[in-house]
Every structure is written in C-alpha cells, then in structure tokens.
Design a binder for these strands. Structure first.
Lengths: 160, 160
DNA sequence: TATTGTTATACTCTATAACTATA
DNA sequence: TATAGTTATAGAGTATAACAATA
C-alpha cells in the first residue's frame, strides 16, 4: 500500500499525541487535500474559457435547468450572497453570455437566461469539464469510483 | 438508496446533455460538497478557540513536528505565500502562541517555536478537533471509513 | 548571485446593509 | 410589512514584488 502525505501526518501525531485516535484525519484530511488538487485542475479548464468557478457554476445551473432561473433561486442554491450574485450576473451580461428578463408576474423579479452565445459557450465548457473529470479519476477503476460516490452519497444524505 | 442533491444535478444533466457521461460528477461534485460542509464544521471548533483555519494549520504543524520549523518549510507544506506566512506568524507572536528564534547556523533564517501557552492551546484544540471529526464521520461504519480513506489514498498517491 | 524572511502595495472576492421598487 | 434585486461600502485574505540581510 503506497504511502501518501497524510500517512506521514498521521505517523507524526501517533508519536506526539499517542492518546488521540486520529483515524478520522485519514478521511477528512485526504478529502481536503484531494478536493484542493481537483479544484486546481477544474479551474484550469474554466480559465481556458475565460471563466472563474463561480461563473461556471451560474452558467451550468442555467444550462442544466433548461430554463431561466431567478437570481434568488441561484444564490440560495450556490450558497453565496445576493450582492455577489448581482455582481457576477452583471459580468456575464456585459460579456453577452446571459440576459436579464423582466418577470411577467412579479415586477420586482427577473429571470436570468442564457443567450445563444452563452449556451454555446457553456456547452463547450461542460464538455471539456466532464472530459477533464474523467481523466482526473481514471486512476481508479469504475467500481472504485462507484464505491467512492456511494460512500460520499451516504455521508451527504445524512447531512442534507 | 437515499437520494442527495448531486443525484438531482446528475438527473438534470441526463435530460439536457444525454450525450455526456457525467458520472465523474457523482464523485467530484460530492467531494466538493462534502468538503465544504466539513470545513464549516471544522471552522466552528477553531473559532471557539479564537483561531482561523490557517492559524490552526500552523500551530498543528509545529505541534506534530515536535520541534521548531522555519517559515519557508511551513509555507511550502501548507501551500501559501511567504508574505501570508509572515503575516500569520506575526499574529500568533502578538498573541503569545509562538516565538521566532534566530537560527544559529544561518543568520537569514529563523525557527518558529510554540510557547508553553501555544502548546497548551493547540493540544486543547486538537483534542476538540479530533473529537469533532469522529462525530462528523459516525454515520459511516468503521469499515466504510476505512474504505473511503483507502480510495482517497490511492487517488492521492497517484497525484503527489 | 541566490536565498531567507519581512514589508508594502494592490487586488480579488465577498459580505453587509442601505436602498428602490413592488407585493 | 415583507420580499426581489441592486448598489455602495468596507473588509478579509492573499499574492506580488521590492527589499534588507546573509549565504
């Protein structure tokens, strides 16, 4: 079994704090480290298309919803503030990737909609993104990937 | 099998982009989401002790090393800039948790060392931290936790 | 010349809250 | 009164690079 960086950390704690059972770090520490490395890789792809992660998230949310979405709906799902959402949407509007459409039933509200250009872009980005994710995981077998997904699903389902 | 939020996202992509095999999102999307939730929980504990994550990381690095460490060694391991390290160490010095000790062999260099107060604090924080991590994972069986750690180790070992 | 570590500057992203318009 | 969304302000955290001292 090949050692990784977290094994070293666990060994150090075993020496310095033998009273503690640090085994959860084997899961949580690795999760953090893996997540960090994965994010770096994902961001490289986004950058190739001139997007940052939050912009990708907005465009992808719109694309997979298949219909316009309100800013409020999006900032709640994507877990950032209303102000941050306005700023991001502004940026995407300026670049012609989305438009704001006035709501017909509530004049306070609007719908954010992909333009043709925005849809073309996000389709290309998602294709590259998924391809990148496939490559990222190909050191694990199909079965291992499924096991990993399933364990994470179990954990998440208990928290959400 | 209980559904989670990522299952919903995968189903949406299946409708909108049936040409794509989005299964990697089942792993990577969940990892990101789980990591995010875990971080929030970890930060709550750190906050109870008046620390932020980066400060915890520095103190924990010093504690488990069991001996003083140079700033350069730490910022390379912890992956942040030299400037950020100086700022953080300054803050910890002001609070009496660490001291800078001049190197005896290289007068450009220094060693960052825990004070008695710093050591007492980090020992208490780590105890609470590990306890928190145990609770966080207790929805998974011991065996499931071990499987998860092992899959993540395999992935990480291939990237590091 | 290269390296250690600090300092000073500027920048990115965000939250917060005040605000407008509407419900 | 409450809500949708925008705007304006301020703040946290960081990277960057210039810098001083030493190797």
């Amino acid at each position: 079994m090949k050692q990784d960086h977290v094994d070293t950390i666990l060994a150090q704690w075993q020496v310095q704090r033998p009273d503690l059972d640090c085994s959860p770090m084997g899961v949580i520490g690795r999760m953090d480290r893996a997540n960090h490395l994965m994010k770096l890789s994902l961001e490289e792809v986004f950058k190739q298309f001139g997007l940052m992660s939050s912009e990708f998230d907005i465009l992808a949310t719109l694309r997979r919803a298949g219909e316009p979405v309100t800013p409020t709906e999006m900032y709640q799902t994507l877990m950032f503030s209303s102000g941050a959402m306005s700023t991001r949407v502004d940026g995407l509007v300026k670049r012609g990737l989305v438009v704001r459409q006035a709501s017909e039933t509530d004049r306070r509200s609007c719908l954010v909609m992909l333009t043709d250009e925005g849809r073309t872009l996000i389709d290309a980005v998602v294709t590259a993104h998924v391809e990148n994710e496939h490559q990222m995981l190909n050191v694990l077998t199909e079965k291992e990937q499924a096991t990993l997904a399933s364990l994470l699903r179990k954990w998440l389902a208990s928290k959400e």
